[in-house]
Structure formats: structure tokens, C-alpha cells
């Protein structure tokens, strides 16, 4: 199964890109997970609240149905709640400060050669790598 992982990664990736392409070409919108949710959370996205909510409804329910019918997926998230809470806070603040996450800056930004998207991706990949090195290999908390 391990050696099949890259195929699943590629197929899933094409689906992610296909979803971003659909949302762009039909709705004329950037598929950024943090921006779509963040605009609902802080009210800045109220002009298209329904469209955001519909996107998130699809994002939550379709994997829920797939998980129920075909897979028994695991997130393998650490049971250490202090780590989970710290990580959630960092992801929430960081993605809103940077105006994007892996989907917005990474997928939608890089694919149009946006300088902001490429720079953001370099910095969050670097920070992610450092984070794993520090918290896994040096401190041993994850």
C-alpha cells in the first residue's frame, strides 16, 4: 500500500486542482480554505456568505459520506491537546495575517505565478519543516 501512496496523492491532487478550477471558472472565485472560512468567522465575507457556507458544507459533508461508505480514515492527530490548541491558534492567526493557506497561496497562487503565493509557500514550508525538526527531534513533543 505504501508504494501506492504517490498515485493516490496525484489523483487526489488532481481532484483538488479540479475543484479550484471549477470554483474559479464557474463562480469566479479563488478556492482558499482559510479565506472562505475566515470571511464567515469575522464577518468580512458577509456579501457572499451563502456561497462560502455552501462551499464549506460540501467540504465537510462529502468527505463525511465517503468516510462512512468507503474508508475508515484516520487523521492520526496527536492526543496532546496543548499541542493541538497551540497549532490551531497558530494556523488561524497565521493564515489570516498572510491572507491564505496551502490552497489559496499554494494551489491557486503558484498556478498563476503570483509572487505573493510563491513567497508565502516558501515561508510556510520552511516554518513547517523547522517546526517538525524542533518539536519532534529536539523537544520530542510530537
Amino acid at each position: 500500500m505504501i508504494e501506492m501512496d504517490w498515485i493516490w496523492g496525484l489523483v487526489g491532487g488532481l481532484m483538488i486542482g479540479g475543484a479550484a478550477a471549477l470554483f474559479l471558472l464557474v463562480n469566479g472565485r479563488i478556492m482558499g480554505a482559510s479565506g472562505l472560512l475566515g470571511g464567515l468567522v469575522d464577518g468580512s465575507g458577509s456579501p457572499n456568505r451563502a456561497e462560502r457556507a455552501a462551499f464549506i458544507a460540501g467540504l465537510v459533508t462529502v468527505p463525511a459520506v465517503l468516510a462512512l461508505l468507503f474508508f475508515e480514515p484516520e487523521t492520526n492527530l496527536t492526543p496532546n491537546l496543548a499541542v493541538v490548541i497551540s497549532a490551531g491558534l497558530l494556523v488561524g492567526i497565521g493564515t489570516r495575517l498572510a491572507n491564505g493557506c496551502t490552497s489559496g497561496h499554494g494551489v491557486c497562487g503558484i498556478s498563476r505565478f503570483s509572487l505573493r503565493g510563491m513567497v508565502a509557500t516558501v515561508f510556510y514550508l520552511l516554518a513547517g519543516g523547522f517546526s517538525v525538526v524542533i518539536f519532534r527531534h529536539l523537544l520530542g513533543v510530537i
Binding site: 499541542v83 497551540s86 497549532a87 490551531g88 491558534l89 497558530l90 494556523v91 488561524g92 492567526i93 497565521g94 493564515t95 495575517l97 498572510a98 493557506c101 496551502t102 515561508f123 510556510y124 514550508l125 520552511l126 516554518a127 513547517g128 519543516g129 523547522f130 517546526s131 517538525v132 518539536f135 510530537i142
Partner: peptide, 8 residues
């Protein structure tokens, strides 16, 4: 900040 939380 996002990357640090993502890695964590």
C-alpha cells in the same frame, strides 16, 4: 506562524 502550526 501558519507553517509552524501546520508542522506542529
Amino acid at each position: 506562524l501558519f507553517g509552524a502550526g501546520w508542522g506542529l
